[in-house]
Design a protein around this nucleic acid. Structure first.
Lengths: 116, 116
DNA sequence: TATACATATGACATATCCATCATATGAAGA
DNA sequence: TCTTCATATGATGGATATGTCATATGTATA
């Protein structure tokens, strides 16, 4: 299989790559749950893991792309690392999604199967 | 490996699922390129395929989730199917991404490798 | 320094995603 | 109906992503 990402689409290269990484990082249930947990307030890795009932290692793995793409910030505090949401991006982003869901995803968040 | 999507995260179920599907569909270079092509105006499948230099079958496959999630609309016109962007969602969405990229992705759309 | 706590990293198995090929459906005109 | 054009669908191999386990790094305190 050819790597599609190597192909030159008729799309501004930067925007294309940024969007793809942007959405790919967000398109994962663990990372989305992590994000929403952090919307309640800053937490360290252990607290996130406890809140979600997941392993610390898994949360740590998933935090990396979130931090790299600046969806969340990190701050060292002693031996802890406190993560917090980048509200400047995440808040308006979730607003767009929610608005879309209200208009187009009537059955409890599932996309419509049939076209109209 | 357990299916994480089956687990109950501490997240509103609907929002979690909607977001995941939403971003998963968008996190793909072919679908993003398709979306951007359609931003220039409505096109049928053949035109999209030609514009992107990709096979008709591939475009058709990738259009399906875009339509299902209502990122694009379809309209029958004779034997063609004309696809167009849902500007209500896509425009504000891309604005958020662009704004984020301007602030946090200095090196041509690539996310930063190091945390700050 | 030794220990404990907090977090990150590496390797690996597998589940998921995706482009491709072949084929089917559908619509319009001869 | 037969042919042609436009599009969709199904199957499949293979790349990618992801969770898990084991382990390493790092930080503070005794």
């Amino acid at each position: 299989m050819k790597k599609t990402s190597d192909k030159v689409f008729n799309m501004k290269k930067g925007l294309s790559e940024t969007c793809n990484r942007f959405f790919t990082v967000l398109g994962n249930p663990t990372r989305l749950a992590t994000l929403e947990t952090l919307l309640d307030g800053p937490k360290n890795v252990t607290q996130i893991a406890e809140t979600l009932g997941q392993e610390q290692s898994m949360i740590s793995h998933n935090l990396r792309p979130l931090v790299e793409c600046r969806f969340v910030y990190v701050e060292r505090r002693g031996k802890e690392r406190v993560y917090s949401v980048n509200h400047g991006t995440v808040d308006p982003l979730l607003k767009v999604v929610e608005n879309h869901a209200v208009n187009y995803c009537p059955s409890g968040g599932r996309c419509l199967a049939r076209e109209g």
